[in-house]
Design a protein around this nucleic acid. Structure first.
Length: 495
RNA sequence: GCCCCCAUCGUCUAGAGGCCCAGGACGUGGCCCUCUCAAGGCCAAAACGGGGGUUCGAAUCCCCCUGGGGGUACCA
């Protein structure tokens, strides 16, 4: 248990709109959000759109949609405003130019007009000769004059001494300044790199704690030095562990789209989880337990319960692969916990997407019986299409045959079922089951044999929701008609 | 190559010197239940990467090695 932070908590999630919201970024957002909510702080969405080359037009919208879907609402951001705006870096470029100028004026940075060609050549040489890589500081002490053409602004990294990054999760990390580089702060297009923008914004927006991806750890000393140069106090910082690819090769964020790995679908974008039929509550619960653990041996909990226990210091520094099989299990658990009528509403769009015309009364009636069977909402059509289609098709009459049964005995069973069911005034599943069980006994068939063939006859599938509940929803007329059709089919086959 | 981070069952994790011949969950196997498929119940197999220290005592602390990961861009 750690103490309440000394100052008002203001944390930010700062995605770059270069692609749709990535599940790894979503987890970073989640941890920030959990922390902000726990301490009654402010959760800020800041769009880091300073990379014009990789900009994707609808990425920002997708990011917002995905965060909202997950329930990670922000208090300040490009759409909702706030008193520290603007929240889109492209709208703050004048600010970065000013602060870059300040660094220049005060001797903390320098202009560099090395061409991309020279830089590429330099790199090639370094690689060939095995020398240390990175910019050779060619322009650092040059007097370039006023008219130097396209140029960047680089940070003047101290040449000796050391820089310490005090990570909340890992403790102090010490770098030798001699190993560090003079990285670019302002690009030749006048826009800042992450390094400059991030430090300027975090300070100007009064960010109290920085929670960001592990991949920033290597450039953290630059950020420390920038704060120092500006004379600003650096907020406590924590680097969140990476989400690794299940293939065991690299970080997951190198992949930008769903792929399959030994039979398991690996989803990468948050929107893919939504499409696949995961419940946002399940995804949140799942993500919370990767890199951090609820403790108490509990696997299922609400965000509020997680907040009560969440501490940055408890985050596991090791990277992890997403345990997808656990997510599927969790999703089913959440589906089971959902109130049936509410679940029916959630299922509906997936049925419609499959081209079915949904009768809500039927759907509500059957939902309680597929709840424990449904792993993903997107599987609903497989389970329920037969209820909403006028016609079902049985491709091969042999599918009607159950184990140890031939066409003749199946025909007999179907005819007897037909007569039995037809005689029922009460078509409730209880009544059906009672009489059909008696019929099975009477015919010397197992329940599995008799019910199985009726199942295929009425649903067209060997696997379906419970038979009598299904027929009750289907209605007596339709059920009987389908059995009748199956009987004809068998008779035709039997020539 | 150089710098940095990390290391408990297949996977996600609990464990902050004795409570651990290491606990939970998913997955896997078996049994039970059962109209199919599920769900549910019970049981089982399954891990402290290796080597040195420190200590009465190490999964827990230190060092080395190995392995994995990140960075090395006018991308974030």
């Amino acid at each position: 248990m750690s103490q309440t932070p000394p100052r008002p908590v203001r944390v930010r999630f700062a995605p770059s709109p270069t692609g749709y919201l990535h599940i790894g970024n979503a987890r970073a957002a989640l941890f920030n959000w959990l922390f902000a909510r726990k301490y009654k702080g402010v959760f800020i969405l800041r769009v880091e759109d300073t990379d014009q080359k990789r900009y994707v037009a609808d990425a920002e919208q997708d990011c917002q949609d995905s965060l909202r879907w997950l329930g990670l609402n922000w208090d300040e951001g490009p759409d909702v405003g706030g008193s520290y705006g603007p929240y889109r870096q492209s709208e703050r470029s004048e600010l970065y130019r000013q602060w870059a100028g300040w660094l220049l004026d005060n001797g903390y940075a320098y202009r560099c007009n090395c061409t991309p060609e020279r830089l590429a050549e330099l790199r090639a040489q370094q690689e060939k000769s095995g020398a240390k890589r990175g910019y050779d500081r060619h322009c650092r002490d040059l007097d370039l004059g006023d008219d130097i053409g396209p140029h960047v602004v680089r940070f003047k990294m101290p040449l000796d001494g050391e820089t310490m990054v005090d990570d909340m999760i890992r403790g102090p990390i010490v770098y030798q300044n001699a190993d560090l580089e003079d990285l670019v702060l302002l690009k030749s297009d006048g826009l800042p790199t992450y390094h400059l923008a991030n430090v300027v914004d975090d300070h100007l927006m009064s960010i109290s704690h920085i929670l960001r991806g592990d991949d920033w750890i290597a450039t953290a000393p630059l950020h420390v030095q920038l704060y120092k140069a500006f004379g600003w106090e650096m907020p406590p910082i924590a680097h969140l562990p990476m989400i690794l690819s299940p293939s065991g090769k690299g970080k997951l964020s190198k992949r930008d789209q769903a792929f399959e790995e030994s039979g398991v679908k690996i989803l990468v974008q948050v929107r893919e989880y939504r499409q696949a039929g995961y419940l946002p509550e399940a995804v949140i619960n799942f993500l919370t337990n990767v890199g951090w653990a609820f403790g108490d041996d509990r696997e299922i909990f609400t965000p509020e319960e997680a907040m009560a226990r969440f501490e940055i210091e408890d985050i596991n520094p090791a990277g992890s692969k997403l345990p997808f099989e656990k997510l599927i299990w969790l999703n089913n658990q959440y589906i089971q916990m959902t109130a049936p009528d509410a679940l029916a509403e959630k299922i509906k769009p997936y049925l419609e997407a499959a081209g079915l015309v949904v009768d809500m009364d039927k759907l509500r009636a059957i939902t309680p019986y597929i709840q424990e069977r449904l792993k993903l909402l997107s599987e609903a059509p497989e389970w329920l299409a037969f209820l909403f289609k006028h016609e079902i098709t049985i491709n091969d009459p042999k599918q009607l045959l159950q184990k140890k049964m031939d066409a003749e005995s199946t025909l007999k069973a179907l005819k007897a079922s037909y007569d039995t069911l037809k005689g029922l005034d009460d078509f409730s599943h209880e009544k059906q089951e009672e009489t059909m069980r008696a019929l099975a006994v009477q015919m010397g068939l197992s329940a599995g044999q008799l019910f199985g063939t009726v199942r295929v006859a009425t649903s067209g599938q060997p696997v379906s929701p419970p038979l009598f509940q299904s027929m009750a929803v289907l209605g007596k007329d339709v059920s009987l008609k389908r059995i009748q059709d199956a009987i004809r089919m068998l008779e035709d086959m039997d020539d």
